Amino acid sequence: MFWNKKPDPSPMGVPLGELLAILGKTSIKATLKDNTLFARHDNYTVCLDVVPPDVRESENGPIQAVVRVVTALPSPVQSLFDGRESSATAAYNSFAALGALYSDDGDVQIGSRLTIYEGEDAWQSLHLPLLLFTTIFGTEAILGALRRTLTDEGPRGGDSKWTARDFDQVESYLSRVCACTTGGLGLTAEFGLSDGAISAARGDHKTALFQMMADQPHPELGGGLFCLLQMPHRVRDEERLNRICLQLNKMEMAADDLPPHFGAWCPGRLGDNPSYVTFLPNALHAVPGVAANMSFWAMNRAQWANAMLVALGERA
């Protein structure tokens, strides 16, 4: 009988059933229907939807499927964005950990995206942990940090599990393809955006600055790894910069050939440049190579963002 048909635990070959089983051991109420896993928290529901790619063939090989992680905001929080969608998302996305505030048909939601390629053997080692902790922490990072800001509740604080040894390991890979240095609890790299561009120290202005820091705890999640990709494009008009960040976050949700989207675009530390922030909670430190993956995704994201910004009329 059709009404007794069980949902496919691996829609399009993505084993959501494994994620469902893990969430079943937590307080989160998770169910699977068709191609979507619903993870119900106390005040909101996270939806993980497996969809086909817009175009299957890509430079990185055939795309198997795309997983979109989307949370509709509770009504009281949604009202904070009424009439100030771009400015509010720009401000609050600075608290992002594993997802971004973005606008979809006028509604502000929190979203992440994972593009999975055929033959990619990374589900157990990387994709599953990222989706699991995004489901658990991604929405709470923004809502919790927002609550702490509005109520003057102090930040959580706490030490990071990432150490100088972790950064040295990332540097050993990253230094083969770009200018990269480590020091203390951090790493800094520059990604050239044009032929011959290597480092701003040499006078190259078309480089994106990437930093990883273990001494920047998240106000809600505490200790972890803070990643910051800063584009060199200067957008002098504040409202235009906010709109560009909002647009980039929506574009990141496309079912396309893009690096995994577990972070958010927001104004950078120059005050007038777009930047992409990600925060990995300490629980993800146990995932081998997750920091190295984040750095290479940032390198690819810098190239993509540079192209998108040029298309939007902004040049470095």
Results as ranks from 00 to 15, higher is better:
residue 14 V to L: 08
residue 274 P to Q: 08
residue 164 A to V: 07
residue 47 C to N: 13
residue 77 V to A: 10
residue 89 T to S: 13
residue 295 S to G: 07
residue 277 V to Q: 07
residue 169 Q to L: 14
residue 28 I to E: 00
residue 3 W to M: 10
residue 2 F to T: 11
residue 108 V to W: 07
residue 316 A to P: 15
residue 227 C to P: 04
residue 149 T to S: 15
residue 184 G to H: 10
residue 30 A to P: 06
residue 7 P to E: 05
residue 106 G to V: 04
residue 28 I to Y: 03
residue 15 P to V: 07
residue 315 R to L: 05
residue 209 L to H: 13
residue 76 P to L: 02
residue 130 L to C: 07
residue 92 Y to R: 11
residue 180 C to A: 06
residue 129 P to L: 02
residue 99 G to Y: 05
residue 193 L to D: 05
residue 191 F to W: 06
residue 185 L to C: 01
residue 237 D to V: 01
residue 52 P to K: 12
residue 14 V to S: 04
residue 229 L to S: 03
residue 316 A to K: 07
residue 128 L to G: 03
residue 144 G to N: 00
residue 187 L to P: 02
residue 302 A to D: 08
residue 282 N to H: 06
residue 204 D to E: 02
residue 277 V to S: 04
residue 216 Q to W: 09
residue 55 V to H: 15
residue 245 C to R: 03
residue 57 E to H: 09
residue 21 A to P: 07
residue 99 G to T: 08
residue 58 S to K: 12
residue 146 L to H: 08
residue 50 V to G: 07
residue 21 A to I: 05
residue 217 P to C: 03
residue 161 K to R: 13
residue 161 K to E: 15
residue 290 V to T: 04
residue 93 N to S: 06
residue 167 F to W: 13
residue 276 Y to G: 01
residue 150 L to N: 06
residue 110 I to G: 10
residue 174 L to A: 15
residue 302 A to E: 04
residue 63 I to H: 01
residue 313 G to T: 01
residue 32 L to V: 12
residue 185 L to G: 13
residue 202 R to F: 13
residue 281 P to H: 05
residue 254 A to L: 08
residue 232 P to E: 01
residue 88 A to C: 11
residue 215 D to C: 01
residue 141 A to H: 11
residue 4 N to R: 13
residue 239 E to K: 11
residue 271 G to P: 02
residue 9 P to Q: 02
residue 72 A to P: 09
residue 4 N to T: 11
residue 200 A to R: 12
residue 310 V to K: 13
residue 33 K to N: 14
residue 252 E to D: 15
residue 74 P to D: 01
residue 24 G to E: 08
residue 190 E to M: 00
residue 301 R to I: 04
residue 192 G to K: 00
residue 106 G to I: 12
residue 267 P to R: 05
residue 225 L to C: 10
residue 308 M to D: 09
residue 57 E to G: 09
residue 246 L to K: 11
residue 149 T to Q: 15
residue 173 Y to E: 12
residue 174 L to T: 06
residue 163 T to M: 02
residue 197 A to V: 00
residue 171 E to S: 10
residue 138 G to F: 07
residue 46 V to L: 06
residue 219 P to G: 02
residue 245 C to M: 02
residue 254 A to V: 05
residue 140 E to I: 00
residue 77 V to W: 12
residue 281 P to T: 02
residue 9 P to D: 02
residue 285 H to T: 01
residue 48 L to E: 03
residue 159 D to Q: 14
residue 279 F to S: 00
residue 178 C to S: 14
residue 282 N to G: 11
residue 64 Q to L: 14
residue 244 I to N: 04
residue 151 T to S: 15
residue 156 R to E: 12
residue 281 P to Q: 03
residue 199 S to M: 00
residue 14 V to P: 04
residue 185 L to A: 10
residue 259 P to I: 02
residue 286 A to T: 11
residue 195 D to A: 12
residue 296 F to S: 10
residue 238 E to D: 11
residue 49 D to T: 15
residue 57 E to Y: 10
residue 10 S to P: 00
residue 79 S to T: 12
residue 69 V to Y: 03
residue 134 T to R: 09
residue 63 I to R: 05
residue 273 N to M: 11
residue 303 Q to R: 13
residue 166 D to E: 07
residue 53 P to I: 01
residue 300 N to K: 12
residue 277 V to T: 04
residue 131 L to Y: 08
